[in-house]
Design a protein around this nucleic acid. Structure first.
Length: 269
DNA sequence: AGATATTCCTGGAGGC
DNA sequence: TGCCTCCAGGAATATC
């Protein structure tokens, strides 16, 4: 589920109920997700006050007044449920606030992660330090510089979080379609005009998706915590064989680096 | 450097 | 209805 816009929407939803609150109770309902929960997570969070909700790439950040920041990644199936009616089998981490409100990290596939990092060291913490720029900030010049000399297909490189942080399979496909770039094109061989269209497309696609996610914030508080993608807005993703929204040629699906790529062979040459 | 495969998991979709 | 296979929004790791 989660790429950057979904994480951003999640963080905004969590901010409404967590920001400024004291965490009265922390319950670990299992010992690990992708990795073990950090040692002492419960003790270090219990009694702490939440001072910040943030995001970097696909990582969500929950800062506390104890000098720690909880860093979460939602993996493939992670989501936060706000004030659920009941706790289910995939509810792995539970936070209860001083307003008696419960938020739960739910992740059936358990590809997600939770870490606790000293806030002062956050920017230097390995996984965050390696991330490329935020897609909302990417400039044409910066993007060109990062792609320069790279022979790999542009699709594959855009999935690399060190190039641009936060893009996933869906929004990479969508951005390339908007920019009229063939996903197989060698990244370092993009024309300046193409690179500019790509930087614009990345900014626009992500911006619109956040905006769309933002409009579901009201619904976010539902106990099932479903966010959902605005799939009707996808021009190519998961639309194999269906007509391209621009030119009506059938959308094609190929596999690159083991991941599905959807594109329009006519618009994206 | 790049490409490919594999791994971690569960659940939903579709075939028979 | 049930059983099977395949596939999925991520990302680290190994191997050629």
């Amino acid at each position: 589920m989660p790429e950057l816009p979904e994480v951003e929407t999640t963080v905004r939803g969590l901010a409404k109920v967590l920001l400024g609150r004291e965490l009265r109770r922390v319950e670990l309902r299992r010992a690990d997700l992708r990795r073990a929960f950090p040692a002492g997570l419960g003790q270090r969070l219990t009694g702490a006050r939440v001072t910040r909700l943030g995001r970097r790439g696909k990582y969500g950040l929950i800062g506390t007044d104890r000098g720690d920041t909880m860093v979460f990644h939602l993996g493939m199936s992670g989501k936060w449920r706000i004030d659920p009616k009941e706790i289910g089998p995939h509810d792995h981490l539970l936070l209860e606030t001083d307003e008696d409100l419960i938020v739960v990290l739910n992740d059936p596939r358990r590809f997600g992660s939770v870490d606790l990092v000293p806030t002062a060291e956050l920017d230097d913490w390995g996984p965050l330090a390696e991330l490329g720029p935020e897609p909302g900030d990417i400039s044409t010049a910066d993007l060109r510089e990062r792609l320069r000399g790279r022979a790999a297909p542009i699709k594959s490189l855009l999935l690399d979080q060190r190039i641009v942080a936060g893009l996933g399979n869906i929004y990479v496909c969508e951005a390339l379609h908007r920019a009229h770039i063939n996903p197989k094109r060698s990244a370092g061989r993009l024309s300046p005009a193409s690179a500019e269209r790509l930087a614009d497309a990345i900014r626009d696609v992500i911006g619109e998706a956040i905006e769309a996610g933002g409009s579901t914030l009201r619904d976010y508080a539902r106990p099932n915590g479903e966010l959902g993608y605005f799939s009707k807005r996808f021009a190519v993703y998961d639309r194999e064989g269906q007509p391209c929204l621009s030119c009506e040629a059938p959308v094609r699906r190929i596999v690159q680096g083991g991941r599905s790529t959807f594109y329009c062979p006519k618009c994206q040459r």
